[in-house]
């Protein structure tokens, strides 16, 4: 098992490198001149030339790639952001916590709501509670996250003025006591996290319902009933337990989706996270930031999948990991 984990961890390196290499060439071959977006068009050609030389943009592509790769591998140095001037890794690292906080809490909320509603729905299959839950889940499932976010923002922040509309904390944040700081961030997170959490709860809930119903209809459940097991035990420790196993791999697959959701949510609620940084970097052709952000995104997603695979093999004895 440990050998397996180590092997998978080592495997992350080529995966991320291949991903980054593709991204590197994709970026550099894509139309659009970074210097044009970077600077005022009125800047003289000489100054522009200086900038190009400083970033090495005039060299042949393979040399640029070689230099870039060497820096990344040796120093984890992605170069300086075109826009901010300081190291791209720092720009991205600054944005990472907000995104992790947002997606982490949203996944937890989604899992909680999704599991409860999925189990209830499956147990009451076809009856009123199931129909009601189904309808609600279907509604949220079919909704673009960003639209839900916009509507929530318009209603609760702008119209009713109940919750803050943007940023992760208030301007007077630094003056607050530790407890008040937490409350402040929590208040800022309510809308974005609920939006993202509801969207993922809908997916989880529908998945769990179907999965548990499938289990409830299988022969071993009938056999367990024949042995006189209580319905409670059959639902909770047989059907729900087995039906939740596939959820583990779904969580692994959901992580990148959540990053996607985080992009639009961060843009709508002006949160200082990776998603917004990425959108700005793409629009501004800020190569170092794009590559640095991508690498973090790749790493966290691959680790998420690894954890999902390990979890799956722990939960289901039929799936054995061959080391």
């Amino acid at each position: 098992m440990i050998a397996y984990i180590l092997r998978r961890l080592i495997n992350i390196v080529p995966v991320v490198l291949i991903g980054l290499t593709i991204t590197f060439f994709f970026i550099h071959l894509a139309p659009g001149d970074p210097t044009l977006r970077l600077m005022d068009p009125s800047v003289s050609p000489e100054v522009r030339q200086q900038v190009i030389e400083r970033f090495g943009l005039d060299q042949a592509l393979h040399i640029q790639y070689y230099n870039w790769l060497r820096n990344v591998l040796l120093d984890f140095d992605f170069g300086n952001s075109f826009k901010y001037g300081h190291p791209a890794s720092a720009v991205v690292l600054d944005a990472l916590p907000a995104t992790l906080l947002l997606t982490g809490t949203a996944i937890l909320l989604g899992l909680l709501l999704g599991t409860v509603s999925g189990i209830v729905s499956a147990v009451y299959q076809g009856r009123l509670p199931d129909r009601l839950i189904n309808l609600i889940l279907l509604f949220f499932y079919s909704m673009p996250v960003f639209w839900l976010g916009m509507m929530a923002l318009g209603l609760f922040s702008i119209k009713l003025d109940l919750l803050p509309a943007s940023q992760l904390s208030s301007i007077y944040y630094t003056d607050l006591s530790p407890l008040a700081k937490i409350m402040d961030v929590a208040k800022h997170l309510i809308l974005p996290v609920t939006t993202l959490g509801l969207a993922s709860a809908a997916g989880f809930g529908r998945f769990i319902r179907a999965s548990i119903i499938k289990e409830l209809n299988s022969d071993y459940i009938m056999a367990a009933r024949a042995r006189g097991l209580s319905e409670r035990k059959i639902v909770l420790s047989y059907a729900a337990r087995n039906g939740l196993i596939p959820l583990i791999s779904l969580i692994g697959l959901t992580i990148p989706v959540m990053f996607g959701g985080a992009v639009v949510i961060e843009v709508i609620f002006s949160l200082p996270g990776m998603g917004r940084t990425m959108v700005e970097a793409v629009l501004g052709r800020d190569y170092p930031v794009i590559l640095s952000a991508s690498s973090w995104a790749f790493i966290s997603v691959v680790i998420g999948n690894l954890l999902a695979d390990i979890g799956y093999s722990l939960a289901d004895p039929r799936v054995r990991i061959n080391t």
Partner: peptide, 29 residues
């Protein structure tokens, strides 16, 4: 069920929960 009449289904393989140890399932009964 199980107390007055015990029953063994046609396919033993599919009448066991695939992810629980056999001993545990006997104990559950």
């Amino acid at each position: 069920r199980g107390k007055t009449i015990g029953i063994q289904f046609q396919e033993p393989a599919s009448s066991m929960n695939p992810v629980l140890q056999c001993g545990r399932q006997i104990r559950d009964a």
